[in-house]
Simulated assay, not measured.
Amino acid sequence: MDLVVALVVVVVAVALFFDFTNGFHDAANAIATSVSTRALTPRLAVAMAAAMNLLGALLGTGVAQTIGSGIISPPSGVAGLAVVLAGLGGAIAWNLLTWWFGLPSSSTYALIGGLAGAGIAAGTTVHWDVLAGLVALPMVLSLVLGLVLGYVGMVGVLWAVHRRAFAPTMRRFRMAQSVSAAAMALGHGLQDAQKTMGVITLALVAGGLHQGPSIPLWVTIVAAIAIAAGTYAGGWRIMRTLGRRVIELDPARGFVAESVAASLLYGAAYLFHAPVSTTQTITAAIMGVGATRRLSAVRWGVAGKIGVAWVLTIPGAGLTAAALAALFGLLGA
């Protein structure tokens, strides 16, 4: 088998492994609040999230095209494939590290940081304008909007139901959470599976097996299956952090947090083709709804640790990927 084709196969396999780790790393994004409020059983929640991830991954390719052609422009052949492989290696290493410590860091920004770090180390063109406009700006906005809309939405809900009996109202919100959790899982598939589609397409272009930013159908299908399988595998460490350690959620707050986060994911994907972090978005929304109880209700110490993980994600994954790219360069890739 030709060396370039063999490397493409390796990169595709590693990208799908990253997609799988993304699924189990981020499973908590969609279902932690529903499980913690007992709206869904863990087994049912994981199965539902996997199915909605699969469906969401098939609903668009705008984010995939941003990742596939907008972050870096690697050279063709072995050198370009080595850059993509190093980027994936940095992202996977960061995903596994933060999963082990139960920190809901962003797989999205791990991948972007990995690609950028590998690109810099290898002297590849990095599109800083895209990183500023479609990565950095949405990253800040999704955090701010998650906090603000979570708070405002929860205030509105509290005002609307303040005269109603507590127990029946919470039962209704617990039922509604099944819908909001499904919407969140759909948004996770829509956003995160597309990032793997983009990387695979980037590798196909570097290997001379595909032209242009369009995403091949088979790439969409295998990426959808991989992230759904990873989600079904679970992600219980991070689920505990999001579902209970940031704040004790009731069904109403869980419903609002999931609804706000899902709306932001859809808007970023369809309106701007911007890759945003599902982890960051749902965590910000959880903190926003929690602050309506009282500011001290949010466990800011845990939130601070999550924030540190976010800040370190892009440079951490980038440095790891840069080291791999340098190693591949020494090996003659």
Rank of each mutant, 00 (worst) to 15 (best):
L217T: 09
V148A: 14
Q177M: 06
M175G: 03
L143M: 14
G146T: 12
Q194S: 06
G207T: 03
L134A: 14
M139K: 00
A229P: 05
A228G: 10
A224T: 06
A228D: 05
V155H: 04
G212N: 01
L202Y: 08
L204K: 04
G146D: 11
G187Q: 02
L158T: 02
L143D: 04
F173A: 14
G189K: 08
P168C: 06
G189P: 05
L134S: 13
G207I: 01
V205Y: 05
M197N: 06
V130K: 05
H162E: 10
G153L: 06
L186V: 03
A132Y: 10
L137P: 12
I225V: 15
A229W: 04
S142W: 00
T196G: 05
W128M: 06
A165C: 07
G198F: 13
L186R: 03
G156L: 14
M139Q: 11
L147W: 03
G234M: 01
Y232R: 15
V148Q: 11
I225P: 06
R240N: 10
A185C: 03
I238Y: 05
W159G: 00
G189C: 11
G133M: 07
V135S: 08
G146F: 09
H162A: 03
R172G: 14
G207H: 00
T169Q: 08
I215N: 03
V219P: 08
A176C: 09
A183F: 06
T220Y: 00
M175A: 13
Q177E: 11
A165S: 14
Y151C: 13
S178Q: 11
A136D: 08
A206P: 04
L137D: 08
G150M: 05
G235W: 01
G230M: 14
G234I: 05
A203T: 07
A224S: 10
Q194W: 06
L158M: 10
M239H: 04
T169P: 09
A182L: 01
A181L: 01
L143R: 01
M154T: 09
S142R: 04
V130Q: 07
G235D: 10
V130Y: 00
M239I: 15
L147Q: 07
W159C: 00
I227Q: 04
I227L: 14
R240K: 15
A206K: 13
L149H: 10
T196I: 11
